[in-house]
């Protein structure tokens, strides 16, 4: 695995691999999200209890999955950066933060909008909602560190260590509904007893999740390319013969 890391740690090599992937992801993600939205808003049936408000699930749950997955990716990339000092992984981690902020904000906002008609309130301080809010603040903290230090290596290590510390929140979010009594429902898809929702609802849910995943990969590759080009421009501008 380390051999592959070394091979693609070179920005030039990484970009030659990333460019075609980015183009494919851009087209495919728009297609999958569009089909997902058609299923979510038009073709999926209303719930027998929640009626039409169940449609919020098709954006809330995939956004929440993405927030956790992006954080896990930042955590993993930070470990690789801190242990093996691959700068490309630090760039990957840093460029994922803004996307993570957007998806976490989406999960919080849509959850709140779903909560009002189903629970009768926009917000409760239960374990799942609170731990998710903490995740949002960790993302904001990472963004703050990134913007404060810009290209200093001190900032890189501060970013890496905060990403590691924040990783402890992921299992708390996942198991909060099992460990504590929460208003938020327990897991209905990623659970030991198998999936407990109807297949008509699973199709838009998975389509939106896959669409969001592809969108994440697309935005990440665009952002990494911007970052690498910015570094190249700064390097050439600061060259003594310029």
């Amino acid at each position: 695995m380390l051999k592959y890391f070394h091979k693609y740690a070179n920005p030039g090599k990484f970009l030659t691999l990333a460019l075609p992937v980015r183009k494919i992801m851009g087209i495919v993600s728009i297609g999958v999200v569009t089909v997902g939205l058609i299923f979510a808003l038009f073709l999926s049936p209303p719930d027998y209890q929640q009626k039409e408000t169940v449609r919020i699930m098709y954006i809330h749950v995939p956004a929440a999955w993405m927030s956790l997955m992006i954080y896990a990716f930042i955590f993993f990339s930070s470990v690789v950066f801190l242990v093996w000092k691959f700068p490309l992984f630090l760039i990957l981690a840093k460029e994922s933060v803004t996307i993570g902020v957007i998806f976490t904000f989406t999960a919080l906002l849509t959850g709140s909008l779903w909560g009002k008609p189903t629970w009768g309130t926009y917000w409760v301080w239960d374990a799942r909602l609170t731990s998710f809010l903490v995740l949002f603040f960790i993302y904001l903290g990472l963004k703050l560190i990134m913007d404060s230090f810009s290209y200093s290596s001190k900032g890189d290590y501060a970013f890496g260590y905060l990403a590691l510390i924040g990783g402890f929140n992921l299992p708390i979010i996942k198991f909060s509904v099992d460990w504590w009594n929460t208003l938020h429902q327990p897991a209905s898809i990623l659970r030991t007893g198998g999936i407990s929702i109807s297949s008509e609802m699973l199709i838009p849910l998975f389509l939106m999740a896959i669409g969001f995943l592809f969108l994440f990969i697309y935005i990440l590759l665009v952002s990494v390319e911007i970052n690498l080009k910015k570094r190249k421009i700064i390097y050439y501008k600061n060259k003594p013969d310029n």
């Binding site: 039409e52 408000t53 919020i56 954006i59 809330h60 956004a63 957007i102 909008l113 779903w114 009002k116």
Partner: peptide
């Protein structure tokens, strides 16, 4: 079904 504000806001803003 009377829940247009919640559903459309949940899709539009994100």
């Amino acid at each position: 079904n009377g829940h247009s504000f919640y559903i459309w806001t949940a899709y539009f803003i994100p």
